[in-house]
């Protein structure tokens, strides 16, 4: 699998440290599922996280903390068994996305957007929203009104944006300053996962992510 457009360092690190809104987390988790090199970069950041954790001077635990933890373990011994569920991805949707769709491609309850395009909005935290878009081959993306950061991950087919072609596994990160009209490539209908942050729920992190793009 050759993914040509990977997630940027800033976004990947914010994912590794747990500082992205859920909608963006879903895009990054799906991207990493499709791109081994992004997974390598993610695990490298996590390795650094481990080193940082180990380097911290600790806060002392409450009295009886260990015993309380052992009680937690004996009260909930089933946790380990529950975690064994193995997710199997379908041909189009990576595992984390299947969790949000509640099944595979056939289970999606698409809503028409006109001109053959359709979408389904997935449930996530309010800071940002995330949707699946279905664009017929050769058609332009409908205006999906992003006012902040927009991340788009291609799951099927491809789209062309300016000189760049984005195919399965590729991620495009854009902000509102970037005027673009992505067009689904001919050959196959295009399915994308697109997340944008809701402007009224602007979280502290987003300006930092925005920074590199504002220089464009």
């Amino acid at each position: 699998m050759s993914v040509r457009h990977q997630v940027t360092d800033d976004v990947l690190t914010a994912y590794a440290t747990g500082d992205l809104p859920e909608a963006f987390n879903l895009v990054v988790a799906s991207h990493v599922s499709l791109c081994d090199e992004a997974r390598v970069r993610l695990e490298t950041m996590e390795a650094l996280g481990g080193a940082v954790l180990d380097d911290l001077s600790g806060e002392s635990m409450s009295y009886g903390s260990f015993e309380a933890t052992m009680r937690l373990i004996s009260e909930r011994p089933k946790e380990a068994i529950k975690a064994e569920v193995v997710r199997k991805s379908c041909d189009v949707l990576p595992g984390p996305l299947m969790d949000y769709v509640g099944g595979n491609l056939d289970d999606i309850n698409w809503r028409p957007l006109g001109m053959g395009a359709k979408q389904v909005i997935l449930k996530s935290s309010l800071e940002a929203n995330v949707r699946l878009l279905y664009i017929p081959s050769g058609a332009a993306m409908p205006d999906h009104g992003h006012t902040g950061i927009e991340m788009t991950l291609v799951l099927q087919g491809a789209f062309i944006d300016g000189d760049e072609r984005f195919a399965r596994g590729d991620i495009e990160i854009a902000n509102e300053e970037l005027e673009h009209t992505p067009i689904a490539d001919i050959g196959e209908d295009c399915i994308c996962l697109a997340a944008t942050n809701a402007p009224l729920k602007f979280s502290g992190l987003l300006p930092r992510i925005a920074q590199p793009f504002l220089r464009i």
Partner: peptide, 13 residues
């Protein structure tokens, strides 16, 4: 802290 779900990459088992 964030009260959110955490989508995880697919496991490589």
């Amino acid at each position: 802290l964030r009260k959110q779900r955490r989508p995880e990459p697919e496991d490589l088992t």
